[in-house]
Design a protein around this nucleic acid. Structure first.
Length: 896
RNA sequence: GGGAUGUUAGCUCAGUUGGUUCAGAGCACCACCCUGACACGGUGGGGGUCACUGGUUCGAGCCCAGUACGUCUCACCA
C-alpha cells in the first residue's frame, strides 16, 4: 500500500487552511436565507503571543463556529486585537529605553508615532498563530480597538454617557500605581495575603508636654507619664505617612479613650499638633483602638476627614517618592526607603513602642505588580449602578446564560453592589478623553474638536473663542472602555447603528472566555449592549478554566512549564493538539494540561487515518451478494444514537463530552467492531453494497469529527471520493440523524452477539491461546435462530471454525453462560476440571446472592407499594434473568 | 472575615428529576498478542466501603444537617 502507516499532519494542514480561505468559507455576510451565528473573539493584546490559554479558548470557539457553519448557519467569527493600553505602553517604553530614548523626552505625538510603528511591525502576530490552530475566523473583519472606527465608537459612547450624566469628573480616592504612574480601576488591583509589620507609635499629649520629646524618669530611664496619660499609642503599617496625619481617631464607645476625645497630641518627630477625635469607623478591637487619620492616603481616613472637616495633606508624589510636605529629610526619597529610615528615626527618638508582624493584605497592580497607593486624585468616572441593574436582570432571567451556571452567583454579588468605574488613565496609548477645557477652567465634552469649539462658545457666551484656546484632557481611557463596546463596535454599530451587519449579526450567540474577566469585560459588555443597543450582546457565555500543568500549577514564563503552542502543533498536528486540549476541558474547570492527552489526540488522528487506509484498500466485486446487513443495520443505529447524544452535549456546552462521544463512536464502534465485522479476508474483494454503506458511514463520521479535527477530516473527505466545486467537509451539512424506531433493539441484539464474542475471547485469554488459533463453539440454547443469524459474524469476530447447537454438554470443554444459554469451547487436553468448577461456582455464588437481594426487595411490601411500575418491572426482570442464569450455571456444573 | 463551590478508581473527571445486572469514562497499570489498516495498535483483566458523621426514605453517590480538608471569589480593619 502506498499510504504511510502513520498520519503526517504537516503534509496536509497548511494546504487545507489555504484552500478554505481561497474558497471563502470563513467569510460571512448578512444572508436572509440563513440564520446567523456569531462569535466575537475576546481580542488578545496586540502585543501578545499565543499561549495555552488562547489555544483552549480559540479551539472551543472554532468548534462552535465550524459546527454552526455545517448546520447551515451564516457563521461569523470576528477576530481582532486589543490595544491593551497599560501593557502596550509599558512594552513600548521599555523598547524605546533599549534604544536610548526616554518617554519623558518625547512629545505625545512622537511617542504615539513610535507606538503605532511598533504595532504595525509586531502587533497581531497572535492572529497569524491562530491560523495554524485552524481558527476559521472571517479575517476580512479583523478589528483593532484603537483603529479609527473603533476609537470613534469609544468617543461616541463617552459623549453619550456624559450627556446622560453617567460620566463625571471629580476628586476621589483612587488606586494609584506609582510604577505605571496611573490610576487603576478596582478590578485592576489584586489583593495578596502578606505578612506585614505594624508599628506602634507614641503620640504625646500636647497639653502635657511643651516640647517634642519624651519625658524620661532619670532614675529608671522609663518614659514618664503625666496624669496617667503621657501619650496615645497608635498602630500603623505605614509610618512614612505620619507627616500627613491630621488627627487621631478613637471609637466614641471605647471606654479606654472616651475621656481623651478633644485633647491634642503631637505627631512624633515633627511635633505638629493634631486633635483626638471620635469616629464610629474606628475598630475597638484592632491594633490599639486608635487610628491615625491621613485623609490623602486612605479611603476610610478620607471619609473620617470629610466628616470632621479635617484638612488633607498629601505627602506622596505620583512616582511613589515623598514630596516637600514630608520635610527635607525625607522629601524625594522612595516611600519604602522612607519607611525604613523613619522607623529608625522614631526608634532612636523613643517614639516607637514596638513592632509586630501580622497577617494583612497588600493591594498590588495587576499589570506592574507595584504596591498600590490609595490616592486622592482628579479622575473621570462612570456611574455603574444604573447600568448594572438591567445587566443583572438579563442574567437572572436567563436572557444571557452563563456556562457553567455557578458563575451566576459570582456575577450577582458584583452587580448588586457596583462601584463607580474609574475610566481615566494617565497614559498616552489609548483613546484620549474627549473633554476640552476652556480658558476659565470649565470644560465641554464632544466627539471632535470642532464640535467642542461650538459648545465652548455657547457655554461661555464668547464667540471669539478659537480652537487653540481649548485644551483637550491629557488622559486616555481605560482599555476596557473600548473592549466593552466590542460586540457592537466590530459591526460599526456606533457609527452606523442601522447598518445591515449589526442588524443581522447582533446580538451575537456565544462568547467564550475566562472567568477572570467576568467583571472586567463580560458584565460591562452586557451593560454596554443594553445601554447602546437595548439588547444583550450575546446569549451564552462559555467560561473556560485556566490551563495548568499536570501538577496543577498555573502556566507561567517564570516556571517555564508552558509548552510552546506552535511547537506542539508542529509535533502533534493541530488536530491532535485541539483534541488533546478538549479531552479534559469541562466548562469552568481548570484544565490540567498533560502531553499524554495531546498524544492521545495524535493517536486518534492516526487511528482515523488507518481506518481510511483499510477502507481505501477494498475492492468491490459486483458479483458478491450483500452479506453484512446485520453489521450495517447495527452501525446505522449506533451512529444515529451517538450523533443525537453529541448534539445534546453541544446544546449543553459540554464540548469535551461531545468529543468523547464521537471518539468512542469512531474508535470502539466503527474501528474495533464495525470494520472488523465487515472486513473481507486478506486481498479478498468486498460486496458493493457493504462498501457503499461503509464509505457513507465514514463520510458521516468525518462530518461529526470536523469541528474538532478540521484538517484530517478535510483531507480524508477528499481522499474518500472525488470532490468538485464546494464539496468540502468544512461546509458539508451537519448530519441530521434520527435513530430508527428499532435502534434500541438492533443494539440489544448486537450486544448479545458481542457478549458471545467476549466469552470466547475471555477463554482464549485465560487459556493463553493465540488469536490466530481458530476454535469451535457448541451452544445449548433455546434460540437457535438467533445463533444461526449471527453465525457468520460470530465466526469472524471470535475466530471460530464452526458453531453448532448442542443438546448436552460436550466432554472436555470450557464453558460460559451468557443470556440464559450455555456455551462450550472444546479444548481437548487443556481442561482443568477443578479450576473450571471453582470458576463456575464463584459465579453461581454471586448470582445467587444477587437473586436473593432482588428477591428480598420484591418481597418488601413497602417497596412494591411505593415503587413506580417501571422500576418494579425492571426488578422482576432482574430476578427472572438471575434465575435463568442460575439454572444454566447449575447445568454447566453438572456437566463437568 | 463574608459568599460560592468542591471532595467518586493511581491521575483527570462524568454520574441528568433518588430506583436496571456488584458505581462509569479517558489515561495509567497488569497479562497475552508484531493476527496482512493501525504497536501512535489488538484482546482480556485488576482497581472504588462515592471525604467523615448523623438524618429523611421501601430505596441515597444523588436530598437535609453538621464536621474536616481544598478551590474560587469578594472585603476600607489602620
Amino acid at each position: 500500500m502506498s499510504l504511510a502507516t502513520t498520519y503526517n499532519p504537516l503534509d496536509v494542514e497548511a494546504k487545507w487552511y489555504q484552500r478554505w480561505q481561497e474558497m471563502g468559507f470563513f467569510k460571512a455576510s448578512p444572508n436572509p436565507e440563513k440564520q446567523p451565528y456569531t462569535i466575537v473573539i475576546p481580542p488578545p493584546n496586540v502585543t501578545g503571543v499565543l499561549h495555552m490559554g488562547h489555544m483552549l479558548n480559540n479551539t472551543i470557539q472554532d468548534v462552535l463556529v465550524r459546527r454552526a457553519r455545517m448546520q447551515g448557519r451564516e457563521a461569523c467569527w470576528v477576530p481582532g486585537t486589543d490595544h491593551a493600553s497599560i501593557a502596550t505602553e509599558t512594552k513600548v517604553v521599555a523598547l524605546l529605553k533599549e534604544q536610548g530614548i526616554e518617554k519623558k523626552d518625547l512629545t505625545r505625538e512622537q511617542f504615539l508615532a513610535h507606538a503605532f510603528a511598533w504595532k504595525e511591525k509586531y502587533g497581531g502576530i497572535i492572529l497569524e498563530q491562530l491560523k495554524q490552530l485552524g481558527a476559521s475566523c472571517d479575517w476580512d473583519r479583523t478589528r483593532f480597538t484603537m483603529e479609527p472606527d473603533l476609537t470613534d465608537a469609544v468617543l461616541r459612547a463617552f459623549v453619550s454617557l456624559h450627556d446622560k450624566g453617567l460620566i463625571y469628573r471629580g476628586v476621589r480616592m483612587v488606586n494609584w500605581d506609582p510604577q505605571g504612574g496611573t490610576a487603576l480601576s478596582d478590578e485592576e488591583v489584586i489583593a495578596k495575603n502578606v505578612t506585614g509589620r505594624m508599628f506602634h507609635l507614641r503620640y504625646a499629649f500636647a497639653s502635657n508636654f511643651t516640647q517634642n520629646e519624651v519625658p524620661v524618669d532619670s532614675a529608671t530611664g522609663q518614659p514618664l507619664a503625666v496624669n496617667g496619660n503621657a501619650w496615645l499609642t497608635v498602630a500603623t503599617s505605614r509610618p512614612e505617612t505620619i507627616m500627613a496625619d491630621v488627627a487621631v481617631a478613637v471609637n466614641p464607645n471605647d471606654p479606654r479613650y472616651q475621656h481623651l476625645i478633644g485633647q491634642k497630641v503631637r505627631i512624633p518627630l515633627i511635633g505638629r499638633e493634631i486633635p483626638v477625635i471620635a469616629d464610629e469607623r474606628v475598630a475597638v478591637d484592632f491594633g490599639t483602638g486608635t487610628l491615625k487619620v491621613t485623609p490623602a492616603h486612605d479611603l476610610v481616613d478620607y471619609e473620617i476627614g470629610q466628616a470632621n472637616n479635617l484638612p488633607v495633606i498629601d505627602v506622596l508624589n505620583n512616582d511613589g517618592t515623598l514630596n516637600e510636605h514630608a520635610g527635607p529629610r525625607y522629601a524625594g526619597m522612595d516611600r519604602f526607603a522612607v519607611r525604613r529610615l523613619i522607623v529608625k528615626d522614631l526608634e532612636e527618638a523613643g517614639w516607637l513602642e514596638k513592632t509586630e508582624e501580622y497577617a494583612t493584605i497588600s493591594q498590588t497592580s495587576e499589570r506592574t505588580g507595584a504596591v498600590i497607593e490609595p490616592k486622592l486624585s482628579l479622575q473621570w468616572f462612570l456611574k455603574t449602578e444604573q447600568l448594572a441593574k438591567p445587566a443583572l436582570e438579563v442574567v437572572e432571567n436567563g436572557t444571557v446564560q452563563l456556562h457553567p451556571a455557578k458563575f451566576k452567583n459570582l456575577y450577582r454579588v458584583w452587580m448588586e453592589n457596583p462601584r463607580d468605574w474609574c475610566i481615566s488613565r494617565q497614559l498616552w496609548w489609548g483613546q484620549q478623553i474627549p473633554a476640552y477645557y476652556l480658558p476659565d477652567g470649565s470644560f465641554v465634552v464632544a466627539r471632535t474638536a470642532a464640535e467642542a469649539l461650538v459648545q465652548a462658545r455657547a457655554q461661555s457666551g464668547n464667540d471669539a473663542l478659537q480652537a487653540s484656546d481649548l485644551r483637550q484632557d491629557e488622559d486616555v481611557l481605560d482599555t476596557w472602555f473600548s473592549s466593552w463596546l466590542w460586540p457592537i463596535s466590530v459591526f460599526d454599530g456606533f457609527k452606523d447603528p442601522e447598518n445591515s451587519d449589526i442588524k443581522y449579526f447582533y446580538p451575537t450567540n456565544d462568547l467564550v472566555t475566562g472567568p477572570d474577566i467576568l467583571f472586567f469585560w463580560i458584565a460591562r459588555m452586557i451593560m454596554a449592549g443594553l445601554e447602546f443597543r437595548g439588547e444583550v450582546p450575546f446569549k451564552n457565555v462559555y467560561l473556560t478554566g485556566i490551563v495548568r500543568d499536570a501538577q496543577g500549577r498555573k502556566m507561567s514564563k517564570q516556571l517555564g512549564n508552558s509548552p510552546d503552542p506552535l511547537e506542539l502543533i508542529a509535533q502533534y498536528g493541530a488536530d491532535g493538539v485541539r483534541t488533546g486540549m478538549l479531552f479534559s476541558a469541562p466548562a469552568g474547570n481548570d484544565l490540567l494540561f498533560d502531553l499524554k492527552l495531546v498524544e492521545q489526540g495524535r493517536n486518534f488522528s492516526n487511528k482515523i487515518w488507518n481506518a481510511f487506509r483499510l477502507v481505501k484498500g477494498w475492492e468491490a466485486d459486483a458479483a458478491l451478494p450483500y452479506s453484512n446487513e446485520l453489521a450495517v443495520n447495527w452501525f446505522e443505529a449506533r451512529l444515529a444514537v451517538a450523533a443525537t447524544e453529541m448534539n445534546e452535549h453541544f446544546d449543553k456546552f459540554r464540548i469535551s463530552d461531545a468529543l468523547l462521544t464521537v471518539y468512542k463512536l469512531v474508535w470502539d464502534d466503527f474501528c474495533a467492531l464495525y470494520l472488523e465485522m465487515v472486513k473481507p479476508a486478506y486481498q479478498q474483494p468486498i460486496d458493493a453494497e457493504t462498501l457503499r454503506q461503509t464509505v457513507g458511514f465514514f463520510e458521516t463520521l468525518l462530518q461529526l469529527l470536523h469541528p474538532f479535527m478540521p484538517f484530517i477530516t478535510e483531507e480524508l473527505w477528499h481522499e474518500l471520493a472525488p470532490r468538485t466545486g464546494r464539496d468540502f467537509v468544512c461546509v458539508a451539512a451537519w448530519p441530521q440523524l434520527v435513530p430508527a424506531p428499532d435502534a434500541a433493539a438492533r443494539q440489544t441484539r448486537m450486544e448479545w452477539a458481542l457478549g458471545v464474542v467476549a466469552g470466547v475471547r475471555t477463554i482464549r485469554n485465560q487459556k493463553q491461546l493465540a488469536p490466530t488459533k481458530a476454535l469451535e463453539l457448541l451452544v445449548k440454547t433455546t434460540q437457535p435462530d438467533l445463533l444461526q443469524a449471527y453465525g457468520p459474524l460470530l465466526r469472524k469476530l471470535a475466530n471460530l471454525t464452526a458453531i453448532s447447537v448442542a443438546e448436552t454438554a460436550p466432554a472436555a470443554a470450557v464453558s460460559f453462560v451468557h443470556a440464559g444459554a450455555e456455551y462450550f469451547v472444546p479444548l481437548e487436553g487443556q481442561i482443568d476440571t477443578a479450576a473450571e468448577r471453582a470458576r463456575l461456582e464463584k459465579e453461581l455464588d454471586y448470582t445467587r446472592g444477587f437473586q436473593e437481594s432482588v428477591g428480598r426487595k420484591l418481597a418488601n411490601e413497602k417497596f412494591t407499594a411505593n415503587a413506580k411500575p417501571d422500576v418494579l418491572e425492571r426488578e422482576r426482570q432482574k430476578l427472572a434473568d438471575a434465575e435463568a442464569k442460575i439454572a444454566a450455571l447449575e447445568a454447566a456444573l453438572r456437566a463437568l
